[in-house]
């Protein structure tokens, strides 16, 4: 329970950066922090107490392994989510670099004012 709350407050720190900060790279960093929090939350939900990683080795037998292994499904989905996060981060940084070349500033309010 406290782990869930700490995790959610990490996500709220990212949300704060996304809403309040004016620097465009700080907004991107806020999105990255929120993404960390969501991935970590999904792994937390699949954790089992005194659990082992879902990899079967030779000295385990299948019945006790099924009882003790942590949930492999959120791990597989988070694995794809992390890689997608890298792709979207690259896209956002590319847009930020283009905006800087065009307007000469990273300030969101300035960019809004300079339009047109």
């Amino acid at each position: 329970m406290t782990l869930y709350m700490l995790n959610f407050s990490l996500m709220m720190v990212g949300m704060y950066a996304l809403i309040v900060k004016r620097h465009i790279v700080k907004k991107i960093l806020g999105i990255a922090i929120m993404e960390y929090a969501v991935n970590h939350f999904l792994i937390l939900i699949g954790f089992k107490k005194a659990g082992v990683a879902p990899i079967l080795t030779k000295d385990m037998d299948l019945a006790t392994f099924i009882q003790t292994a942590v949930d492999p499904l959120p791990q597989a989905l988070v694995l794809t989510s992390i890689v997608i996060g890298l792709g979207t981060l690259a896209l956002m940084v590319a847009i930020a670099i283009r905006l800087y070349e065009r307007y000469g500033t990273f300030d969101m309010h300035e960019i809004n004012r300079l339009r047109g």
Binding site: N39, H40, I43, L44, F47, K48, G51, V52, A53, P54, I55, V70, Q75, V78, L79, I82, V83, G85, L86
Partner: peptide, 16 residues
């Protein structure tokens, strides 16, 4: 991730 029993994700997270 290593402590939560997810070694695959830990490796991917370091690289990413």
């Amino acid at each position: 991730f290593l402590f939560l029993g997810a070694p695959d994700i830990a490796i991917t997270q370091v690289i990413v």
